[in-house]
C-alpha cells in the first residue's frame, strides 16, 4: 500500500515544518533564572538577563503577532503605526502599477526585436548594458528627476520588470515555428492579423514565463525600494519595526512577504498554464 506521491510529500512537508518550529521553540526558550538579582535591578535588565531568555522571539510569539495582524490588518494610527494589510496594499499597488507599465512597454518592444533582425541587433547593446544594472542604482536618479518618493519606487519596479519580459518576448516571437508563419503567408494573412493570430498565441507561453520571472523580481525589489524611500509599504514596515527593535514584527513581515510573493507567482503560473498548448 503506497499512498499517492502528493499525500506523502505533504506528510514530509508538515513533518519538516513541525520539526523546524520545535527546534525554533527550544532554541529560543528561556533557561530559567540565571542569577539572584535585586528585583528592582532585574526589572531594568529584562527577561534576557534574568530568565536566560533568547533575544530572538519564539514561534509562539510570532504566531500570536501574526494572528493579531490578521485580526486587525487595516488599522491606521498615524504614519508610524499602520496595519500590515495597509502596508501590503501599498506595496502591491506599487508593484502592480510599475509591473503593468513594464508589460505595456516590454511586450511591444520585445515583439519588435523578435520580428526585426535589424532592431534586434540595434537594440542589443542597450539591453546588454541596462539589464545588469541593479534597479536600486536608479533610485537616486529617479528621486532627483521625479521628485516624489512613491513614484520613484514605481519607476524602480518598472525598470526591474522590464528586461526579463522584453528578452523572453523577443525570444518567443523569434522562435515561432517557420511552418506556422508559412501557413499565414500562403493564406495571405496581413501583418497585424498575423501578429495577433499566429505570433501572439505561439509566443504566449514564453512571454508569460518572462512575466512570471519579472513579477518575482519586482516583489524582491519593492521591499528594498521601500526601505529606501520610506513612508509606507511592507519594506518600510520591516525597517520601521527594526528601528522599533520589534523582531517579532520583522519576522511576521518576512512570513507575510513570502506568502504574498508565492501568491503572485502562482497567479502567473495559472495564467501560463492557460495559454500553453499541447503539441
Amino acid at each position: 500500500m503506497t499512498a499517492s506521491l502528493t499525500l506523502r510529500a505533504a506528510i514530509v512537508s508538515i513533518a519538516l515544518f513541525v520539526a523546524f518550529l520545535l527546534a525554533w521553540h527550544i532554541g529560543t526558550a528561556g533557561t530559567g533564572a540565571v542569577a539572584d538579582m535585586d528585583p528592582e535591578y532585574a526589572k531594568l535588565m529584562g527577561a534576557t538577563a534574568t530568565q536566560g531568555k533568547s533575544a530572538m522571539p519564539g514561534p509562539l510569539e510570532v504566531g500570536a503577532k501574526l494572528l493579531e495582524h490578521l485580526r486587525q490588518p487595516f488599522y491606521d494610527k498615524g504614519p508610524n503605526d499602520k496595519g500590515v494589510g495597509i502596508q501590503l496594499a501599498y506595496s502591491i499597488a506599487r508593484v502592480g502599477i510599475g509591473y503593468l507599465l513594464a508589460v505595456a512597454v516590454a511586450v511591444p518592444i520585445g515583439f519588435l526585436i523578435g520580428m526585426s533582425p535589424l532592431m534586434s541587433r540595434a537594440l542589443d547593446p542597450f539591453i546588454q548594458v541596462l539589464k545588469p544594472i541593479s534597479p536600486l542604482a536608479w533610485m537616486p536618479l529617479a528621486l532627483y528627476t521625479i521628485k516624489d518618493s512613491s513614484l520613484s519606487a514605481i519607476f524602480v519596479i518598472f525598470i526591474c520588470s522590464l528586461w526579463p519580459m522584453m528578452i523572453n518576448t523577443a525570444f518567443g516571437v523569434a522562435a515561432v515555428r517557420r511552418e506556422w508563419l508559412d501557413v499565414a503567408r500562403t493564406l495571405e494573412v496581413g501583418v497585424l492579423r498575423r501578429a495577433f493570430t499566429i505570433i501572439l498565441p505561439a509566443a504566449a507561453p514564453t512571454i508569460l514565463t518572462g512575466m512570471r520571472i519579472s513579477i518575482g523580481i519586482a516583489w524582491l525589489v519593492i521591499v528594498a525600494a521601500e526601505m529606501l524611500v520610506g513612508g509606507t509599504g511592507i519594506g518600510y514596515f520591516v525597517w520601521n519595526e527594526w528601528n522599533n527593535l520589534s523582531i517579532t514584527n520583522v519576522i511576521t513581515a518576512i512570513v507575510v512577504i513570502g506568502l504574498v510573493g508565492m501568491a503572485l507567482d502562482q497567479i502567473l503560473a495559472r495564467l501560463t498554464r492557460l495559454v500553453t498548448f499541447p503539441e
Binding site: 511552418e179 506556422w180 508559412d182 500562403t186 493564406l187 495571405e188 499566429i198 499541447p278
Partner: peptide
C-alpha cells in the same frame, strides 16, 4: 504566396 495556391505541408503545420 496566394490563396489560389494551397499548400499541404509534410509536417501538417496545424496551429496547435
Amino acid at each position: 504566396p496566394s490563396l489560389d495556391r494551397a499548400v499541404i505541408f509534410q509536417s501538417h503545420a496545424l496551429l496547435p
